[in-house]
């Protein structure tokens, strides 16, 4: 199986998933409503309660964190979508075709980027309404969005693997809650790093969701000119650190998922 054929097959499956998004738009509506809800809730409920570094407005501080949290949560769709695919008759068609064994997975993770692009657009618009601003150049902002999408893509491979090892869509949703909730809340997404102490602070400092958030804040210009909150590598070079994690997730979970996909047919 050539690499070109593998990519084409993945692309064909991705197109099929995108057609499904168009045919069942209700799913997309819910995907888009929850980030709006998050932006509004945090911006108005926690704005006064959470202490942020001087010179930074909480709403500005918050939006990059919401971006990070939402795209990471978006990976749940990958797991749920795959778990659903595996239960449908179409999977037998795919298995009986001379197509790449990775295509169903590549197709799913690729088409889920569409969800994340849509939710980033909606969140950015909501953010602008509540007072969030892009204060660096347009290019930096685009890099910020790109970094969010890359990291989300790598996380979606973890959930792809989860979606293949658990028996149903419901379990994927619960499993992702258990993994992703702590991952996003033990970060600087909603609360600044300075607010944590001891071991917790170390965890938050090195959590890739924190570095993703920090990198986004810097690229959007939402740090109020403050220096990085710590001298750790993850905070000094947050974009690089985030990309290292992304590469690591992909390197580990792509082969794991493909192997699991092959195994479930035996």
């Amino acid at each position: 199986m050539s690499a070109t054929k593998a990519l084409t097959d993945g692309w064909v499956v991705a197109q099929r998933n995108v057609i499904k998004i168009k045919r069942v738009p209700e799913v997309l509506v819910f995907v888009l409503i929850s980030p709006i809800m998050f932006v509004l809730l945090f911006a108005y409920v926690f704005a006064g309660a959470i202490q942020v570094p001087a010179g930074v407005d909480y709403k500005e501080f918050l939006v990059a964190g919401i971006f990070a949290q939402t795209v990471v949560f978006g990976a749940t769709f990958t797991g749920a979508g795959l778990a659903e695919d595996m239960q449908k008759g179409i999977i037998d068609r795919f298995r009986s075709l001379p197509m790449s064994r990775s295509a169903v997975l590549v197709g799913r993770t690729t088409s889920d980027v569409v969800y994340n692009v849509c939710s980033l657009v909606i969140m950015a618009l909501t953010g602008l309404l509540v007072g969030w601003r892009i204060r660096e150049g347009a290019l930096d902002a685009l890099l910020g969005f790109a970094l969010l999408l890359v990291f989300a893509y790598s996380i979606s491979w973890i959930m792809a693997w989860v979606g293949l090892i658990v028996p149903s869509v419901d379990v994927v949703n619960n499993a992702s809650f258990v993994v992703i909730f702590p991952l996003t809340f033990l970060s600087n997404a909603f609360v600044p790093l300075e607010a944590f102490d001891g071991v917790l602070k170390t965890i938050v400092e090195w959590n890739p969701v924190s570095s993703l958030t920090q990198a986004s804040r810097e690229l959007f210009g939402n740090t109020g000119g403050q220096p990085p909150p710590s001298e750790a590598f993850s905070m000094e070079h947050p974009a690089v650190y985030t990309l290292i994690w992304s590469a690591l997730f992909v390197a580990v979970f792509v082969p794991l998922s493909v192997r699991q996909f092959k195994r479930t047919s035996k």
């Binding site: 054929k5 084409t8 097959d9 064909v12 499956v13 197109q15 099929r16 057609i19 499904k20 045919r23 069942v24 449908k88 008759g89 179409i90 999977i91 037998d92 068609r93 795919f94 009986s96 075709l97 001379p98 197509m99 295509a103």
Partner: peptide, 27 residues
């Protein structure tokens, strides 16, 4: 060519889209 007991078609896709997809996956 395999045709199974549980029709292996994607219900959200049209008949045309289903068959086109299969053709593409055959290369």
């Amino acid at each position: 060519g395999l045709s199974g007991q549980y029709a292996a078609v994607d219900e959200h896709l049209t008949g045309f889209e289903n068959l086109t997809m299969v053709g593409r996956l055959y290369g």
